[in-house]
Structures are given as C-alpha cells and as structure tokens.
Amino acid sequence: MKTNSLSAWILAVRPYSLGNSVILVLIGSALAYTDHSFHWLPAVLCLVFAVLMQCTANLVNDLWDFLKGADKPDRLGPDRAFAKGYITLPAMKAGIAGFTLAACAAGIGLLVWALRAGILRYGGWELIAAGAACILFAYFYTAGPWPLAYHGLGDIAVILFFGLVPVGFTYYIQTGAWTWEVLVAALACGLVIDTMLMVNNFRDREEDARCNKRTIVVCLGAGVGRWGYFALGAAAVALCLTLLAGGRIWAALLPLPYLAAHTATWRKLLRIDHGDALNVCLGETARNIMLFGALLTIGILLG
C-alpha cells in the first residue's frame, strides 16, 4: 500500500466501525420524530460531528496504541495503518488535527442552529461542555499520561460516549428535553456497542497484559470477557423491554431478534476462545450492532 495514500487513510479511520455513530444519531432522531420535534439540519450536523469524532478517536487510537506498544505489526486484530507504516507520523498528526477541526466546525454549526431556535435550556454552555468532553474522550481514551483504555475505564467510556452522550444530545438538540425513554435507549446502545470493545479486549488479553494495558479482561480475567460479552447484549435487550411501560411496544419487542444473533456469536467466541480466529466474532459483532440499531430505530418509528 502506498504511504499516505487514500487507501491508507480509509484503513486508518476504520469504516467498518463508523456505522456505530450512524445508528446512535438515527435512534436519537427517531425518538425526536415520534415526539413531533424532528429537525433535519441538526440531525445531519449531529451525524457529521459523530462520524468525524469517531474518525478522530480511531486515528488517535491507531497512533498511540502503537507508540505504547499495544499495536505491533504482528497484532492479532485487523491491520493498523500507522503500525504497518502506511501513514507517516507527520501525516497522522495532521490528519488528527484536521478531523478534530472539522468536527468542531460541525459542532459550531449545531450551536448556532440551537441558539437561533431558542431550544437550549442553559444558553448553549451544555453543548460546549458536551463537545469538549467528546474531544477529550477521543484523545485521552488511548493518549496522554493516563489513558482511559489502559486503566480499566475503556468500557465505561464507550457506554458514555457511544451511548448516553450521542443519543441523548441528538434528542436534546432537537427537542430541548431529555426523557427516561431516551436514557433507556441511549444506555442500551452503549451496552451493545461495548460488545465490540469486549471482543477486542478478549482477543488481545495476552498482548495487552504484556504491554501493561489494564483492560477489564486483563484485570479480572478471561472469564469476564466470555460472560461479559453475553451480558452486555442481554442487558441491552432487557432495557429495551422496559419501553413497554411507555407504550412503545415495537421499540421494546423488535430488538429481540438481535439477542439470537448475539447469542450465536457469543457461542462461537466460547468455541474459538483465543487467537486471530476471533476476528470472525469481531465482524459478526459489528453486524449485530447494526442489526440492533436498525431494529430499535424501526421499532421507535412504529411506536
């Protein structure tokens, strides 16, 4: 692969993972639509911001996992562009800065729209705080003197920034409110997306232990990875069932087929147990996340 080529950048931003950001904004927007408050422009800006911030986080992760020794050229997981030498250090730093600035531009657009719409409760400071938190998460998940992913906080960070924040603020920006149903849907999304981190950490547990990357699986043992993976998906479906209390029957029941797909992948994870063969489970997990997002979005729209 040619150094700093388009193909190298596509590999670096990990397009297979960007669907996570898409489904989060879709679910938040679907909830706003059923509450008669959907606005297409902030929904699009939320989507652009979420995707750009995920690209930023992926690039920072690509760079700093290599610098910290977690990603080596012979890693078990999918190829990393910087570790393979496909992107140079100056280009990677420039790319991170570029994606961050582009995300900030989308965030400023959101702030301007929301202020003009008069929909915010705290004068826009809540959006500034949320945007700043997203940027800090993107960087300090793997970078900095105390990276979250290296101190057992990766899963909490994913549930927060790939669940509660994007779904909640996508809804809030369009409605000026926050409901218990939004909280349930956002938390369910965070748990489902954390299954991808869990299977990654389960696969890499021996490498992570060698480089002192203290994930939950490294700290508490492989059993937590095996059973935690299943528990995350099952808990997400259980949370969706609570939407029955709000009369959202389809949103509660339609995600149930996801649990069957999730269970099948979990059983495969147990059989394989270790090695790069677990990348099959990683691919299936990405597919299952998209399935969950599609089913929950459709269920919300159906009522």
Results as ranks from 00 to 15, higher is better:
Leu153Ala: 15
Glu181Ser: 12
Gly144Gln: 02
Ala132Glu: 02
Leu241Ile: 13
Ile128Trp: 09
Lys268Trp: 07
Gly109His: 11
Phe161Pro: 00
Leu191Lys: 04
Ala185Asp: 00
Leu187Pro: 00
Gly233Met: 08
Thr297Tyr: 07
Trp250Ala: 15
Leu239Glu: 04
Asp35Val: 06
Gly107Leu: 05
Gly247Lys: 10
Tyr141Ala: 11
Thr34Leu: 06
Glu181Arg: 14
Leu120Phe: 13
Gly95Ala: 10
Ile300Glu: 05
Leu26Pro: 01
Thr263Val: 08
Val192Cys: 08
Leu282Glu: 04
Ser21Asp: 00
Thr297Leu: 06
Ile249Glu: 07
Arg287Leu: 13
Gly176Ala: 09
Asp62Val: 03
Gly299Val: 04
Val60Asn: 12
Ile272Cys: 01
Phe292Lys: 07
Cys281Glu: 05
Leu295Cys: 10
Gly168Leu: 03
Val182Ser: 00
Ile289Leu: 12
Tyr122Arg: 09
Gly69Arg: 10
Trp227Leu: 07
Gly131Leu: 07
Tyr16Ser: 13
Tyr258Asn: 14
Asn212Cys: 11
Leu254Pro: 02
Gly98Trp: 12
Phe66Glu: 13
Leu153Asp: 09
Cys281His: 04
Arg203Cys: 09
Gly168Met: 04
Ile135Pro: 00
Pro73Ile: 05
Ala133Glu: 10
Gly293Thr: 03
Leu282Ala: 12
Cys46Tyr: 03
Leu160Pro: 06
Ala43Glu: 11
Thr297Lys: 06
Asn288Ala: 15
Gly168Trp: 02
Gly152Arg: 10
Ala32Phe: 07
Arg248Ile: 11
Ile173Thr: 11
Ala133Leu: 15
Asp155Trp: 09
Met92Pro: 05
Trp178His: 10
Leu24Ser: 02
Gly221Thr: 06
Ala245Thr: 08
Phe82Ser: 08
Leu76Glu: 14
Ala177Ile: 03
Arg214Glu: 12
Tyr171Leu: 06
Leu232Asn: 01
Ala70Arg: 12
Arg14Ala: 04
Val199Pro: 01
Leu110Cys: 07
Leu282Met: 14
Tyr139Asn: 11
Glu284Ser: 10
Ala43Val: 09
Leu291Gly: 01
Asp194Cys: 15
Ala114Ser: 15
Gly123Ser: 08
Ala260Phe: 14
Val182Pro: 00
Val51Ile: 15
Ala186Leu: 04
Met196Gln: 14
Val44Gln: 04
Ala130Met: 15
Asp273Glu: 15
Ile27Gly: 02
Ala209Asp: 13
Leu183Pro: 02
Trp178Glu: 03
Leu41Ser: 05
Leu256Gly: 09
Phe66Tyr: 15
Ile156Asn: 04
Val48Gly: 01
Leu282Val: 14
Val167Glu: 00
Asn201Val: 02
Leu244His: 11
Ala236Leu: 01
Thr175Arg: 05
Phe161Leu: 00
Asp71Ile: 02
Leu239Phe: 06
Lys268Ile: 07
Arg271Ile: 10
Ala245Trp: 13
Pro145Gly: 04
Phe169Gln: 06
Ala138Ser: 04
Gly95Glu: 11
Ala261Pro: 00
Ala157Lys: 07
Val13Tyr: 01
Gly246Tyr: 14
Ala149Thr: 11
Asp155Tyr: 07
Leu253Lys: 01
Leu110Glu: 03
Met92Cys: 07
Ala222Val: 12
Leu41Phe: 14
Ala50His: 01
Gly69Tyr: 10
Ile272Thr: 05
Leu256Ser: 12
